[in-house]
Design a protein around this nucleic acid. Structure first.
Lengths: 131, 131
DNA sequence: TCTTACATTTACGTAAACGTAAACTTATAT
DNA sequence: ATATAAGTTTACGTTTACGTAAATGTAAGA
């Protein structure tokens, strides 16, 4: 179906920039890295719901410390149609690798939070004693 | 002057490199950034237990996605003697900031692990069906 | 003493993830 | 029709966290 005057116009790069707190440069950079593939209305980029969903995944990946290359791979794992997966064992293996990284990270987070608790308690105790 | 086996009272940069899987360059870089302050035997660096402890903290900080500047701050928060903290409220505030980042990260990890579970289940199901 | 092995400083190089500026095109408002 | 705003490509610049090489130093064994 072609574009008509009644079609939902989608989102401009400005919309995403404002919604996600990113710069246009960053969003285009993600496209350069193969993380996004917006349509074009003429020369301008038009983003849809799937792009917004991908952006949320991208930003979470970043917060989790993954590189854009790794994020691209996870997106490919996610959007691969199960019937077209060339090597399912390798596919599952990669998923396992990411899970291992995340479980290790989860443990690190736990330890760090405990560490902060100790740190805070120590400081607070001395503060009350001094004040 | 005989050098006995048990005489060396510390670790060389080579020891740390091997123990932590880092390069000497990296360890010196951490010192340049104020994360380590080894003693010197002549011109050579001698690391002690406290340095090894700091290195473990540094590496965890890295895995958690903190910059070396942030890690340096957390180390300063940690090694500050409670009696000498200039502004305990600011001190506690910074600790709270780090805790907020870590709790957010913990949530992200949870979501990402659930996501991987879904992803894996989908792939495995299709695999069994196809095989 | 000479060699060998590891250490140090100095300094330029690099990859990732954008920032920023320049020069243009396109769309909308007046 | 023209001004203004937003979008585009191109390309060099910047920051972080080291890599890598060169020149030099030093301590211990052959």
């Amino acid at each position: 179906m072609g574009k008509t005057r009644n079609m939902s116009p989608g989102f401009t790069i400005r919309d995403l920039r404002r919604e996600f707190g990113l710069t246009a440069r960053t969003i285009r950079h993600y496209e350069d890295c193969g993380l996004l593939r917006p349509e074009r209305r003429g020369t301008a980029r038009i983003y849809g719901e799937s792009d917004r969903k991908r952006l949320r995944l991208i930003m979470r990946g970043k917060r989790l410390g993954f590189s854009l290359d790794e994020i691209r791979e996870t997106l490919e794992l996610y959007y691969a149609r199960p019937g077209e997966i060339a090597d399912p064992r390798h596919h599952l293996g990669r998923i396992g690798d990411y899970r291992a990284k995340l479980t290790a990270l989860r443990d690190d987070v736990r330890i760090a939070l405990d560490w902060l608790d100790t740190l805070e308690a120590r400081c607070a105790a001395h503060w009350r004693k001094g004040a």
